[in-house]
Design a binder for these strands. Sequence first.
DNA 1: TGTACATCAGTGAACGCGCGTTCACTGATGTAC
DNA 2: TGTACATCAGTGAACGCGCGTTCACTGATGTAC
Lengths: 193, 193
Amino acid sequence: MVRMRGTREQKAETRERIVEAAGRLFRRHGIDAVGVDAVMHAAGLTHGGFYGHFASKEALVAEVAAASLARSAARWEQISEEEPPAQALGRIVDAYLDAAHVANAEGGCVLTTLGPDVARRAEARPAIAVSVRAMAAALERCGAGGEAAALAALSTMVGAVVLARLADSPEFSETILEAARAALSPVRQGEGG
Amino acid sequence: MVRMRGTREQKAETRERIVEAAGRLFRRHGIDAVGVDAVMHAAGLTHGGFYGHFASKEALVAEVAAASLARSAARWEQISEEEPPAQALGRIVDAYLDAAHVANAEGGCVLTTLGPDVARRAEARPAIAVSVRAMAAALERCGAGGEAAALAALSTMVGAVVLARLADSPEFSETILEAARAALSPVRQGEGG
DNA sequence: TGTACATCAGTGAACGCGCGTTCACTGATGTAC
DNA sequence: TGTACATCAGTGAACGCGCGTTCACTGATGTAC
């Protein structure tokens, strides 16, 4: 296999690779369906090395959930700062309520893939809540209305993706996404909250 | 322990007890965190008898998800038929977007507790989709607007409960619920869809 | 520049445990006579 | 009404397997001289 080049920075990179691989696998197959073995293999390592990076699988889960959602929040913040409000809101909402997002659970929003599972793990919740606030704040900054309107919009987005993944046909899935898009259109025209 | 009284109806009752116990445990702790052993014990039986009722744990999971959500849908349908539309809609929405529902995952809506997990199991999806349609139809019958408005309202409700369970404080949890309630108030005044 | 040693990220065999599943058995019930 | 037998829901010991975790070891790198 690939030999490591040694230093501490290398180890940090490896750790990040583990977190990213775990993030993809957990979101796709569910946390309990993916063993430490599978995560390490996906990161190009053997399972024994895992405990040089994390105290337990639970610690990895907490870090994965926090890191993945923080990244989503950071992306929204960046869009909300770089683009005109209406355009930024459109980009965020349209990308979220998209069939590609529904199909790509592996790379999708943690709230829609692991939300209920993370909610059962008290240690993971504080970091998640911080990102939820940040995501709502980004929507607010895009002109989605006040805090309440932004939280409601986020709720609609999360719920729609969860339901779209439960649909029994691509058509029903798209109907749900379109319904959510339509419901959010007043918010996008500055009529929300 | 309690001795069975023998007949086939008894067996059907036992089976139902297993499904109900599993429903409560799965929603509370997650599917993979609950073994067949725990389910049977909660139903007042020993684990060996499980396979006289179900072909596998997976078969139980599919039945639990379908049965639990079908019951939710039936309740909504009943409310939507027995009460005046506006009142029925208020009862459904207020009960869903309630701190008691958020706290009581064990007895709560399957969409918010097992949604992403069920979405990964293709066999379970058709039955779930039927109930999702039925729930949206019940909202529609209560005057929540057309199909699209009803699906969007359901999305908001599901997402809000998922987010409320991820909150790091009761206050933030209540803020999310209240935001969703406020967002749905136009729908409740017949302005939706 | 070259050699000897310490470090430590990663390896891979091994562990104990709990899970899903199987199966020979039990004993209460319903039925046949 | 009473006895003998068949049925079958439920019991509980046992199984193999895969999981999370541990640990003695490896070998490439950085450092000391």
